[in-house]
């Protein structure tokens, strides 16, 4: 009997097994639950209910907005930092980068709890008629977004930094040589070449911030409901509706990944999709 030959392809077997059991099978289970009713008969009632219910749609819009605002703020903060870090001649810039990344190593529930306490402290600052304290106490959306930005900022900085590090410095020299000023250099070199970094940063911030309901529960006093919380609520009692919500989220993720070009295997994307 001939033994199967060990080839490089065989190295993929563990990953393929992982993929089947932890990605494909669970997804099929979600699809199954989404399109069945309590008695496991095929049914589209969850689908119809979902898209005819304004509260579910507005929750999705809310999550989209929170995620969008978070992403934009993260980008606005992270881009200059990554730019400066990548182009500076500092020898110890690794240390500065670490300062942004180290919080990621601390348990995130702990950090959000700490942020909650900081907000409590800030709200106790005396003001005329206590407008500040009462505003901050009730500003659930504001606090949620701050928490999200705080939580996801490193995920934006890292891919941006790695792509910008790889931009060849001679391009800037050439730009200066040919008469381009700093703005030209930025719009013609930095921005286009850091696009893959922006894309992967955006994907890594946008998608999780749609579902991270721990932040909205802790900082928004559970008055802010995002889609992740919805799914979790439904999974307490009604797996079928919960699966439908999860499936809709999956479709949103899929579309936004397609739009951001996440499926293209470009050379310059390599290493930026962390």
């Amino acid at each position: 009997m001939k033994l199967p030959r060990f080839t490089r392809k065989s190295l993929c077997i563990p990953y393929a097994v992982f993929l089947v059991f932890f990605v494909i099978v669970p997804m099929l289970v979600i699809v199954f639950y989404a399109f069945t009713d309590q008695n496991n008969n095929i049914s589209f009632s969850n689908f119809i209910k979902f898209f005819s219910d304004p509260t579910k749609l507005s929750t999705i819009v809310y999550s989209l907005v929170i995620a969008l605002v978070t992403t934009v703020i993260c980008l606005l903060i992270a881009y200059p930092i990554a730019c400066i870090l990548a182009r500076s001649k500092l020898k110890k810039k690794f240390v500065i980068l670490m300062l942004f990344v180290v919080p990621m190593w601390i348990n995130f529930v702990l950090r959000i709890n700490a942020l909650r306490e900081i907000f409590n402290l800030l709200a106790s600052i005396p003001s005329e008629g206590d407008w500040w304290g009462s505003w901050l106490t009730g500003a659930n959306y504001f606090k949620t977004v701050v928490g999200m930005v705080y939580d996801f900022l490193p995920f934006m900085i890292l891919p941006l930094y790695t792509t910008m590090m790889k931009i060849d410095n001679s391009l800037y020299e050439a730009s200066a040589d040919l008469g381009g000023n700093a703005l030209t250099a930025f719009t013609r070199i930095t921005l286009p070449l850091s696009m893959p970094g922006i894309m992967s940063g955006v994907t890594m911030v946008f998608l999780p911030s749609m579902t991270n309901y721990v932040v909205s529960d802790m900082l928004g006093n559970a008055k802010v409901t995002i889609i992740g919380k919805f799914i979790s609520n439904y999974f307490g009692n009604d797996w079928h509706m919960g699966s439908m919500v999860a499936l809709v989220l999956l479709v949103i993720v899929f579309v936004s990944t397609w739009l951001s070009g996440g499926f293209k295997a470009e050379d310059n994307v390599r290493g930026t999709n962390l």
Binding site: K56, Y62, L68, T225
Partner: peptide
């Protein structure tokens, strides 16, 4: 069970103001 669950999800979810909807649409 379903009635109460739906009630809870309606209570939880927020309602959108008009300006918010416009801003959102433009951004998206």
């Amino acid at each position: 069970s379903e009635r109460i669950n739906e009630l809870w999800s309606r209570v939880n979810s927020g309602e959108l103001d008009e300006w918010a909807i416009i801003v959102i649409c433009l951004c998206v």
